[in-house]
């Protein structure tokens, strides 16, 4: 099994800067985890509120490493046939029909039943070879020559059986296909799993991963993220937006706005040519970062004080 380019992982700072270069601003802790994942050869299990950049981390890691990203979106009922491989049944059936005539050629001249069987046996594995195999994301990731970043998204949505089935891949980077044998990774893929914690994952799975929790970022970090991701934004507005969002996160809402919502809002404000927050502007754009009627009503009532606070301190 080969290893991915190691010059990019010379130090934690190098990883952090590398991710920063592809527009992923992150804390030292996240960089440390990625650095460790590389050096220990372990998958990373990323948890955290929706929209803090769990999936984004895997995507940027792929950019950073200059590798293809292979994504497996989990859902209830996901099984091996969808995740690992499937036989191309249609093609198999078609070929059996097409080759039916050839059958005569093969068994012509055979003396007796057992000799015909003997001759047929020489061909029996034909229909269970790579040619008739449809590789799905997991198998694809293992068979990438140059390595890949494998993202198993929202693993908590999949069934327990699927989790159990992932174990072999995560610890040994190999899978068993009964008809063909064990397929080991050409180059060890870099694996990210994300979870929204809708259910508890099994101990066995967690044990095989590094556990990374990405919380909402502190204001300085979030400002820097906005600066990088929304290039046109003025520094003053950036401060106010981040400040306001942090105020909103203190409220008791159904769904707290996360980084992706901050970015959306900042983009909208830039498009609207806003220079500074004011209560009307906030009221008109609340639905960008709040997704529930009740939440919007709650913030709408308090927007005057919150805007005042954000503008003053920003």
């Amino acid at each position: 099994m080969k290893n991915l380019g190691s010059d990019k992982f010379s130090s934690i700072e190098a990883v952090r800067e590398g991710l920063g270069r592809v527009s992923y601003i992150t804390s030292r802790q996240v960089a440390t985890t990625v650095y460790l994942a590389y050096h220990l050869g372990k998958p990373v299990l990323v948890e955290g509120p929706a929209g803090v950049g769990k999936t984004e981390l895997a995507k940027t890691a792929a950019l950073f490493l200059d590798l293809p990203l292979i994504r497996l979106q989990c859902y209830e009922g996901l099984d091996e046939a969808k995740a690992l491989y499937e036989w191309k049944y249609g093609k198999q059936l078609l070929y059996t029909q097409l080759l039916k005539d050839k059958l005569d050629d093969i068994i012509r001249g055979a003396e007796g039943f057992s000799e015909a069987m003997e001759r047929l046996r020489l061909y029996e594995d034909i229909f269970f070879s790579w040619q008739f195999l449809e590789p799905r994301p997991l198998l694809k990731a293992l068979r990438q020559e140059g390595g890949a970043v494998l993202l198993v998204d929202e693993i908590d949505k999949a069934d327990d059986e699927f989790e159990a089935f992932l174990l072999e891949i995560l610890s040994d980077y190999q899978v068993s296909i009964p008809e063909i044998g064990t397929v080991a990774a050409v180059t060890r893929p870099f694996v990210f799993l994300t979870s929204n914690n809708t259910r508890e994952l099994s101990e066995a799975l967690k044990r095989r991963c590094l556990h990374l929790f990405i919380p909402f970022p502190p204001p300085e970090l979030e400002r820097e993220i906005v600066r990088v991701r929304v290039p046109g934004i003025a520094e003053g507005l950036n401060r106010q937006v981040v400040r306001f969002i942090h105020e909103v996160r203190k409220l008791d809402l159904k769904k707290l706005p996360s980084i992706s919502e901050t970015l959306d809002w900042a983009r909208v404000l830039v498009i609207l040519n806003a220079e500074s927050l004011n209560p009307d502007l906030v009221r008109d754009t609340l639905n960008i970062f709040l997704k529930f009627e009740e939440d919007i009503a709650l913030v709408e009532d308090r927007r005057h004080q919150m805007v005042a606070a954000a503008v003053k301190e920003g």
């Binding site: 934690i12 440390t32 460790l36 508890e200 101990e203 967690k206 044990r207 590094l210 556990h211």
Partner: peptide
């Protein structure tokens, strides 16, 4: 760094 490293490798929730 040590604190975080141990957290990442040992914790499961």
């Amino acid at each position: 760094l040590l604190r975080h490293t141990l957290g990442v490798t040992l914790a499961k929730s």
